[in-house]
Amino acid sequence: MKNILLFIYRNHVFFVFLLLELACFWLIVRNNNFHRGSMLNSSNQVAGSIYEFNNGITEYFKLKTINDELALENATLRSMLSSSKYTVSTTNYTVRDSVSRQHYTYVPAKVVNNSTDRRSNYLTIDRGLLQGVQPEMAVLSSAGIVGIVKDVSKNFATVISVLHKNSSISAKLANTGYIGSLTWDGRDPQVVQLMDIPNHVELAEGMVVQTSGYSAMFPAGIAIGKVRSFSIKEGDNFYSIEVDLFTDMNAVSVVYVVNNMMGAEQQELELQAQTDDN
């Protein structure tokens, strides 16, 4: 016993070092999990406030692009207004709409921190619990998809970018209806990979890839990107497809957090089916 204590005392620097490294690895492993509310990420108040202050300065340099983006989006939305549509039918019907119920609501948010150059990238946005943001909500930009909410604090949230090692988003080829999953190989922040499309599907460059709506997070039919190139490895049953993202992940600044009002219901039901299987 005495010898053990003596040994630890002689090498106490090494043991402190070992202890700190173990703490680091524990933090790394814990950070990889969803849903662990933790203070040690940029959704905490201090880090959020510093990033918000910094964004307040750098935002001025991006104002022109932001304005262009918003103007474009305004134009698209305006074209959807009933006032900008020509009524084909000559009689007007007033429909009291009890058939459609609100399925998704959107919370607008500003990106206060963003990265695209790492293997696993995150964004921080300036909306949190108090504004109705919850973990696992989808995040969209005006052009396409951005990611999924990871942790939330009162006023901030961190978002797992589509440019993340573990990101896997259900997507479909717009015209064919085939479903695959979208991943990122860590190279070009403008290009993601669509997996699991069987090799008998006829593909063409420029085909639009959109969200499938299979997961309870993303609404169906949101445009993600265009097929840039595709190939089949010898002996493989699936294509390797490179997809050009519509969202410029380097310049994303205004985003929308999607609240699926029936998401919990869908997930509960699917979970039930899974537990019945086991």
Binding site: C24, W26, I50
Partner: peptide, 24 residues
């Protein structure tokens, strides 16, 4: 020195959402 190293890395980790990679 070890403690300074650990907390320096941890501070950068908090801001970069990297768990404990910098600290390690």
């Amino acid at each position: 020195v070890l403690l300074v190293g650990f907390f320096l890395g941890l501070t950068v980790d908090v801001f970069s959402n990297t768990g404990g990679m910098h600290a390690a």
